[in-house]
Structures are given as C-alpha cells and as structure tokens.
Design a protein around this nucleic acid. Structure first.
Lengths: 192, 192
DNA sequence: GGATCAACCAAGCAAGCGCTAGTGTAATTC
DNA sequence: GAATTACACTAGCGCTTGCTTGGTTGATCC
C-alpha cells in the first residue's frame, strides 16, 4: 500500500478537499463527506492520504507554494522602484487570495489543526513568503516611501491584506488592483 | 429546569469555556472537557446552558459587549481631535484584544460555528462596534488626516488590528499603546 | 498470459460524541 | 414544615467518527 505520492489525481482530490474545508471547517468535514465529494468511498480515501490531517497539510502546502511562486514571478516582472514593488506584492497577494481562495482560507482558519510536524514544515514555507514581504518593505523604508518599524509595518500590511478574505466580494465593483492601489496610497507618505 | 439565566456563576463558566475554545477549537472541545474545566460533571453542564452552541454564543457575546463598552468609554474620555480619536480607538481595540483575548480569538475563529439565530443576534452587536470605527474614520477623512475610500480604509485598519492576535506577544517590548501609535503614524498623511 | 500494481469497494470496529433521564440534596420560599 | 428551587450527580442511549481489513477490478508490463 503506497500512501505518499504526488500523483495528479491527488492534486485534484486536494482541491476538492479545500472546497469542503472552507464550507464546513476541518473538524466538521468527515472523511465520508470528503470521499463523496471525490466520488469514491471513504475507505478508498486512505489509499491517497495517510490520514485526515495529511489532507489538510496537502491543501495548505499547495496554496502556500502557489503564493510563493506567484510572488517571486511578480517581483521579477515589475518595475524596480520601491513603490512599484510594493504595489506588485500587494496585488499578487490579493490575486492569490482570490484565485486560490479556498486553500488560503483553510490556511488562515485551520492552521492550528495541523500536527506539530506538518506545522513545522509549512511554517518554513510561510517564512520564505514573509521574507519576500520584508525585503520589499525594507526597500520602501529605505526609499522614504513609508516610515516606522519594519516588523510592525510588515505585520500591519499583511493583516490588512489577509483580512480581505473576510469581506471582499469578487463580484463587487472593486478589483484586486483597486485594493492594492488604495492600500499603498494609505500607507505611503507621499502624494500618489 | 431553568436554563437561560445570566447568573454570576454562568459568567465564570463562560470564561473557562473561552479558554478551552482557544486552546482546542470549538469542535474539538467536548462537553466532558468543558465540564472538567468547570469542576462539574458533563450532565450538570446542561443546567447552565441549553446546549454546546449556547456556550459559544455566550463567550462571543461577552467579548463583544466588553469591546463595545470600552470603545464607547474611550471615545468619551479622549481629546476631540480626529487624530486623538483615531489613536484612542486603536488603543482601545488592542487593549480589548489583549485583556479579553480568549473571547476575541474565539469570535474571530469560531464565528461560523454559530447557528443562524445566534449569528444574527451577534452580528448586530458587531455592526454597532464597526459603526463606531467608521465614524472615527469619517472624522479623520474630513480632517484630511487620511485619504481614500472610507469603506476600504476602515477594513484595512480593522484587518491590521485584528491580525495582531496572531503575532502579538504581550510579554514583548511593545505595549498596545506603542502599536496604536505606530499604526496611526503609518496611515496618517501628516508628520507626527 | 501470468505478474504486478494502483485504485477502488463493502463491511465494520472501537472510541468518542452531544445530550437525556432520573435521582439526591441543601438551601430558599411561603 | 411542606413545597419549591438550584445545582449537582450517575448512567447510558443512539449515533457518528476516523480508520482498518480483506478482497475485487482493470490496466500495464515483460
């Protein structure tokens, strides 16, 4: 019985699981519900995942990997100014939060359901992502674009952005780009 | 069998429940765990609360009521300038988040576990609290202290503040007052 | 054309869940 | 001093949970 793999099939199952985890929360999502969503029986589920927790870890891992990849790509293809980079990161963050919404909502809400070992592994990924942010914020501080404690500024900005999953309506009038603009304007000590 | 009451005993039990809900999450907290924490047997628990959900609602209600009361009191005892009011609200929010931490973490993480009727009742309370914020932000906008869309600014600020529960260390070097200062400085388009 | 293997299923176990029923008891009320 | 009340107990019902077991299927490989 092979359990750990990253077959394409597993990716699909992971995405379906994310959907359910968002709707019901991790604890209320039973393996029977997961299996039904996947079109298999509950027993078969354990052919793809060692246990229920591993499904959660897979969901969060995929979302974080995507966010990291998108952020890196974005930073390579935007202008070199501190303002452009700041704005690009904000937009990338919001777009990830919306296109890959399920995985990120799960990461935000169900992080504490991970066992110690998964949490350790995944927090390294998250640290890598946050390091990108801190670099961009350092640039903005050095350029005089914003002022203050880099640690605090980074966390305030991430908080404002992550909080959007609780109120943002993708079908509303505002685009992710609008939000990024508005946020950067808010924290920038310089007329846009 | 009387069930609904707001005896002082119930307040204590509610606070103990909040503690457990933070540690384990609502779903993973069993009525047996709650009862043990309270020093009674699981059956006795249902003398004080109709069911498990009612305990959750009680926890969140108490936290929100406190936040609302503190915010109102703070607004009455601070200076009249837009900046003073903004700062006072930020500090009040952070202090509530820290002194009454358990209840607020529960409100943030377990909101969706409320049944429709409790959620309806409590969202009115929350709306009242957010209305205070929007008034303060309107003042700040009118005073030219900050710029932008009032809806977005309010949500960005609340996001930055609420996110603090995930990283703030009460035993660290920074006081809530420091945080409030830094946040207001960050979003204020005017040298402090 | 036998061997291998991933993918699935039916059946069910042991544990734990929220909650109820019925009872005991000390304090309070009339 | 009888009745009521608040609060706690014991015992357990009915159900769901995550997960295991043992076996079947169809495709692929040599």
């Amino acid at each position: 019985m092979k359990v750990i793999n990253d077959s394409p099939r597993r990716k699909v199952l992971t995405r379906q699981a994310a959907q359910l985890f968002v709707q019901e929360g991790f604890d209320r999502t039973t393996v029977r519900m997961l299996a039904q969503e996947m079109g298999i029986k509950s027993g078969s589920l354990f052919h793809h995942f060692r246990d229920k927790q591993e499904i959660l870890a897979a969901v969060i891992e995929e979302g974080t990997q995507n966010a990291l990849a998108i952020a890196r790509a974005t930073l390579e293809h935007c202008g070199p100014t501190a303002e452009a980079r700041l704005q690009a990161m904000a937009r990338a963050h919001l777009e990830t939060l919306l296109t890959d919404r399920n995985a990120h909502v799960v990461a935000l809400y169900e992080w504490r359901r991970l066992d110690a070992q998964a949490r350790d592994h995944l927090s390294h990924l998250r640290d890598a992502y946050e390091a990108l942010w801190e670099a961009v914020i350092d640039d903005a501080l050095a350029a005089g674009l914003i002022h203050g404690d880099r640690f605090l500024v980074a966390r305030f900005v991430m908080g404002a952005l992550n909080w959007t999953v609780r109120w943002y309506d993708p079908n509303g009038p505002r685009s992710p780009d609008d939000l990024a603009h508005e946020l950067v304007a808010m924290i920038t000590h310089r007329p846009a």
